[in-house]
Write a protein that binds this DNA or RNA. Structure first.
Lengths: 143, 143
DNA sequence: GGCTAGATGCAACTGAGTTGCAAGAGGAAA
DNA sequence: TTTCCTCTTGCAACTCAGTTGCATCTAGCC
């Protein structure tokens, strides 16, 4: 069993998913497996010593990993901001938003209730809790 | 009391916040007040009949509304995607992520528990629930 | 070692959102 | 109603995360 930091885990992970073990992919997986928080493409690029790895390669590798469920996006990417009037929301929590993964429509679930998160580590002061649900809307779930 | 669709509510809202009542702002607020779901800048622009209103104006008006709490972003804008290995998460729910509004750092709250959303409207099939917390991290809360 | 599909690098592109600046308009005072 | 000041708007040019097309390279099977 190897005890150095770059274990065989990433290599195995790739093989299990029938993906080629390339330098770039192994480097990315090694970095993510040692990460204590989600990393952006930029952070990953900085942490890769070998600066020859192109950002496109990192994006493509990450997307491949996403497809295979090896990795996921810690934050749903929402390049396009959506706004609504604030009158229905409490100061700390808004109603959850549901986005359909098939048709892309978003619905406000005004009546759905989510208790505030519990077991928070000490010292964190929560000002706002936001819940995002993904799945199929009634229309798309039928078909 | 006026009964037409463009009520005085938006005008009052602007006055309460010491904001000038301009054509663009009133149009945007009217649209949002009739919206059943969060709208993007593009959608708002489409719904404004007067096509002469510039997209920059809409962005700036929305940001002003944000500053005054009249409006909020239904989805936290995350232009930059952050990735992490998927091994710690259940198929439906990942641990919550906390983003500090002061220093911008994000932390994984691995031990925090959030019950799944209840009182869902009929027909919605949830595949994934994501919780985003905002506030102050222990370091920033001290200062 | 040779071959081939899949992976990579490069450059150019896309598009949401921002910035600087000049021109325009709201609204309070005269 | 007019004047005037300040805030708002429009335009054009920019920023930058992420994508695409295409030529080149390489992992891994034979």
């Amino acid at each position: 069993m190897k005890h150095d930091k770059t274990t065989n885990a990433p290599r195995d992970l790739l093989r299990q998913n029938n993906l080629r073990c390339t330098t770039a992919r192994l480097a990315i997986l090694n970095i993510l497996s040692q990460a204590s928080q989600p990393y952006s493409q930029e952070t990953i690029a900085q942490q890769i010593n070998d600066e020859s790895i192109n950002k496109v390669t990192i994006y493509r590798a990450l997307n491949t990993f996403l497809d295979h469920g090896i990795v996921h996006k810690a934050f749903t990417r929402q390049r396009i901001a959506h706004y609504e009037l604030a009158h229905h929301c409490s100061s700390i929590q808004c109603h959850p938003h549901f986005t359909c993964t098939r048709c892309g429509n978003t619905h406000c679930l005004l009546n759905a209730k989510i208790p505030l998160t519990k077991n928070l580590p000490k010292g964190f002061k929560i000002h706002r809790q936001q819940v995002i649900l993904q799945g199929l809307c009634p229309k798309c779930a039928k078909n």
